[in-house]
């Protein structure tokens, strides 16, 4: 079976985010960018399914600037077979991304779309669910375990208070949570091999999709800073302070 794995290029999760003084957004100039951590987990899971012989082909797709090719290259080095970049400098909303991915699914006909549950920039946690709705496919979000048997996937999901297991008919959209796996580091030979793999480059206009924004960002601001408090010397003093504050 064939798997489509959408991947996003985002600010590296170890970088401290700085809001631009003019409140138009976050400063991304000269900042380290990486594959979104949840996307990495999705790629890893697809590669493991291929190693188990369940999956035969993995296509990594990214929608973003020219540099998103590097993100696709990372997926190829981890074990994806080929890549597709829909190149745009616009920061598309999840709705537009889901519409483009739907068009890609139409061309590629995968049996499974495996993607991260959210990107750590916009923190929307929406694209997978939206793609499933547009395709009329079932969804299994926040996956911590995936088992494929025939034309069905059994997915254990991280929900509030515990775990839930759903069986979805394929084709389906599954989104990855943190504990699904620990992504591998690509080996040097695999990085070299990835350079020979194909990345097709397209534009959003190739798909005839309405990608106009529905949300206008009026401003981006820093959250209010929390003032630091005091150091206490002992547990006794701590309890005294907590009583004064009225929290115990």
């Amino acid at each position: 079976m064939k798997v489509l794995v959408p991947v996003k290029r985002v600010i590296d999760y170890n970088v401290k985010v700085r809001v631009k003084p003019d409140q138009t957004g976050v400063d991304l100039a000269n900042v380290k960018m990486s594959m979104n951590p949840f996307c990495e987990i999705a790629v890893e899971e697809a590669v493991r399914l291929k190693e188990k012989g369940v999956v035969t082909e993995i296509v990594a797709v990214s929608i973003g600037p020219q540099q998103a090719q590097e993100t696709i290259r990372t997926a190829l080095a981890m074990g994806a077979d080929r890549g597709l970049l829909i190149q745009t400098d616009e920061d598309l909303e999840p709705l537009a991304v889901a519409k483009l991915l739907k068009a890609v699914v139409g061309e590629e006909s995968p049996d499974l779309v495996l993607m991260g549950k959210q990107a750590i920039d916009g923190d929307n946690n929406a694209t997978g669910q939206m793609l499933a709705a547009l395709l009329g496919w079932p969804q299994a979000t926040f996956a911590s375990k995936i088992e494929i048997a025939g034309s069905k996937a059994s997915v254990t999901r991280e929900i509030d208070g515990g775990l839930q297991t759903l069986e979805v008919a394929l084709p389906a959209v599954v989104t990855a949570d943190l504990r699904l796996n620990e992504p591998r580091y690509a080996s040097l030979p695999n990085i070299m091999k990835a350079k020979k793999k194909t990345i097709d480059i397209k534009a959003p206009s190739d798909y005839g999709v309405d990608s106009a924004p529905r949300l206008k960002v009026l401003k981006v601001t820093e959250p209010p800073k929390r003032a630091g408090g005091i150091k206490v010397e002992s547990a006794e003093q701590l309890v005294g302070k907590l009583k004064e504050a009225g929290v115990i």
Binding site: I11, K16, V17, V19, V26, E93, P94, L95, I120, D121, G122, D123, N124, N125, A126, M130, P213, R214, L215, K216, V217, L218, K219, V220, T221, E222, P223
Partner: peptide, 30 residues
């Protein structure tokens, strides 16, 4: 419709404040 995720403030009936970048920035969207 474009969903508006995780709002922490209602400014008016079409404008909302939501955290992005793990709460390291706040975005006001209309």
């Amino acid at each position: 419709v474009s969903p508006i995720s995780d709002i922490q403030e209602v400014v008016d009936e079409k404008t909302f404040v939501r955290p992005i970048y793990a709460g390291n920035a706040l975005e006001t969207v209309e």
